[in-house]
């Protein structure tokens, strides 16, 4: 059963990683993806909106799919919402397994599917007060479809 959190607060990636190996000796590797807010085109902040309830459910389903496809010993997905500044983390995906291939592949799978199947929307705020909604990218659909 994966740990899934959608929250405004920052998270501690180190503590979350340590939690996946604490007290057990069957973990051979932990793979991680840390998504960070970039400052493109003079971005001041990114504001993330989500669909409370559906978002958690969608991520839990994606994580269950990963646990069905790969032999994972642990899985953590934390996605922040609200106003996030350039340089701040947005999303953390951790997968632990006895062997590295399962950890690495399931981690890539999780972030690819999360990008296209979990109801989050990004709004970019720029200096001077302009804003724009981020548009979905065909490359993200292609990345999700390869799994």
């Amino acid at each position: 059963m994966a740990k899934v959190l959608v929250q405004q607060a920052p998270f501690d990636a180190g503590a979350e990683t340590a939690a996946l190996t604490a007290g057990r000796t069957d973990v051979g590797g932990v793979a991680s993806f840390l998504g960070v807010c970039r400052s493109d085109d003079g971005l001041d902040a990114m504001v993330l909106e989500h669909y409370p309830g559906m978002t958690e459910r969608a991520i839990e389903r994606i994580a269950a799919e990963a646990e069905g496809r790969w032999p994972l010993t642990g899985c953590t997905v934390i996605h922040r919402v609200g106003r996030i500044l350039p340089g701040e983390p947005i999303v953390l995906v951790l997968t632990a397994s006895s062997h590295r291939a399962a950890a690495l592949e399931s981690c890539a799978f999780l972030i690819d599917w999360l990008k296209t199947r979990a109801p989050f929307w990004k709004r970019e705020e720029f200096a001077g007060g302009t804003e724009r909604w981020v548009e979905a990218r065909a490359e993200d659909d292609a990345a999700a479809a390869r799994w």
Binding site: Y51, V91, K115, A118, P119, F120, W121, W133, A136, D140
Partner: peptide, 10 residues
């Protein structure tokens, strides 16, 4: 029922 643009999280 909810309506929204294509999702852009991650």
């Amino acid at each position: 029922v909810a309506f929204f643009p294509p999702v852009t999280g991650g």
